[in-house]
Write a protein that binds this DNA or RNA. Structure first.
Length: 176
DNA sequence: GACAGATGAAGGA
DNA sequence: TCCTTCATCTGTC
C-alpha cells in the first residue's frame, strides 16, 4: 500500500511578514499571506504532521523552500527572481494554468491589463475569466497577479487586499 | 444549468 | 469625464 505524503507547511520570514509555504511531493502547492498575530498563534496550536516541524524534512523540499524564500525576498524587493521551485498545480484547470504561466512572464516593474493577459492566452474575450483565475492563484506574489491592472490603469481587485497590491507595486516602482 | 465575477467597451448625461 | 448598462467567458455549485 502506498502512503500519501501530507503537504508540508513551512514559514517564510520576509519584510512583509511571515508567509506560509505548502509543499507536496511534486512542488510548491500554496503560499499563504502573513496572518495577524492571533491567527499565527492559533496556527501554531494546530496539529501538524511530523514532517512539518523538523523531525523529518526531505532534502528536495528543503531546497525548494530555499528557492521559495529567495524568490519571495527578491519580489518583495522589486527585483526579478532567478529560479522558482516546481509548482504543483494538480487539480487546477488548463485555463487557470495558462493564465498563471502568462503572469510569470510579466517582468518586475511592468504591468499588464486583464485584457492583455486574455489575449496572451489566446482568449481575447475571456477578461472576466482571467480575473477569476487570478483570484484562484494559490501562489500570490511569486505568480505576480498583483501586476495585472484594469484597462483604465486602476487597481482592479486582489485576493490579498488592494492595500497589499498597491504596496507590492510600489516596491517595484509602479505608482497607481 | 444557473449564477457570480479582480473586465471591457460603448453610449448617454 | 463619469456613470450605467450590456456583452462576454469561465469556474463553481
Amino acid at each position: 500500500m502506498k502512503t500519501k505524503i501530507q503537504p508540508v507547511e513551512l514559514p517564510v520570514a520576509t519584510v512583509a511578514g511571515q508567509f506560509i509555504a505548502r509543499y507536496s511531493e511534486t512542488g510548491l502547492v500554496e503560499l499563504d499571506w502573513p496572518k495577524n498575530e492571533k491567527r499565527k498563534a492559533e496556527s501554531r496550536k494546530r496539529k501538524h504532521n511530523p514532517a512539518i516541524w523538523g523531525l523529518f524534512l526531505p532534502t528536495k523540499i528543503r531546497s525548494w523552500h530555499r528557492l521559495t524564500e529567495a524568490a519571495l525576498k527578491k519580489v518583495l524587493a522589486g527585483r526579478a527572481f532567478r529560479k522558482l521551485p516546481p509548482l504543483d498545480w494538480t487539480g487546477k484547470t488548463k485555463f487557470q494554468k495558462s493564465v498563471w504561466r502568462a503572469l510569470l512572464k510579466i517582468a518586475p516593474g511592468k504591468t499588464k491589463s486583464y485584457g492583455e493577459i486574455a489575449r496572451a492566452v489566446g482568449r481575447p474575450k475571456a477578461v472576466r475569466a482571467v480575473g477569476g483565475a487570478c483570484s484562484a492563484n494559490p501562489v500570490p506574489v511569486l505568480v505576480p497577479c498583483h501586476r495585472v491592472l484594469a484597462a483604465n490603469h486602476k487597481l482592479g481587485g486582489y485576493s490579498g487586499g488592494l492595500d497589499r497590491k498597491r504596496r507590492l507595486l510600489e516596491r517595484e516602482g509602479i505608482k497607481i
